[in-house]
């Protein structure tokens, strides 16, 4: 029941995000959608992932989107009417893709046969022993992303209009 409610909230806010005309409303409904996804992560008993998802995604990344839109005054309303053929094609294409994916899903029975511990302690232990190289590499990725962002967005426009 909780899963049905959460997934209804998630799908509804995703549809609102796609259909709303102003980017601010899209961001707000995407935040709602990501919190719903965090609740679903909690239902699958992956608590650490739910917390990280809520902090990193719904917190940091969405605040980044909001800052860019608000600081650059990018909140132009956009009319959704002018691409009728594209809209029909998009709905057809993604409907076909969704039916293909859903029909290929194996029907798993709900199993709680193997109960490995998914606590924060187990995940941290695994991350800092077996996956320590990946962890260090991700810090390098972050450093290069930071340098790249500063180089791309921090420079003045070459041809000011």
């Amino acid at each position: 029941m909780i899963f049905l409610g959460l997934s209804a909230i998630t799908i509804l806010s995703a549809v609102i995000m796609v259909l709303s005309r102003r980017p601010i409303y899209s961001i707000i409904s995407l935040i709602v959608c990501l919190y719903g996804l965090g609740g679903i992560y909690l239902l699958t008993q992956s608590q650490f992932l739910a917390i990280v998802h809520m902090i990193v995604y719904a917190g940091a990344i969405m605040v980044l989107f909001l800052f860019v839109i608000m600081l650059m005054n990018l909140d132009f309303p956009e009319s959704l009417i002018r691409h009728k053929g594209i809209r029909l094609g998009a709905i057809l294409t993604s409907g076909v893709i969704a039916t293909i994916i859903i029909s290929r899903i194996d029907r798993f029975a709900p199993s709680d046969a193997v109960r490995q511990s998914l606590t924060v302690k187990a995940i941290g232990k695994l991350m800092f022993t077996q996956y320590i190289a990946v962890f260090e590499l991700s810090t390098i990725v972050f450093l290069s992303a930071t340098i790249g962002v500063i180089l791309v967005a921090g420079s003045r426009p070459v041809t000011p209009r």
Partner: peptide
């Protein structure tokens, strides 16, 4: 998969 297809529709029809 439903969320994926909603996102795909959005990528195709939104121009922002």
């Amino acid at each position: 998969s439903i969320l994926f297809s909603i996102g795909l529709i959005g990528v195709i029809i939104r121009r922002n």
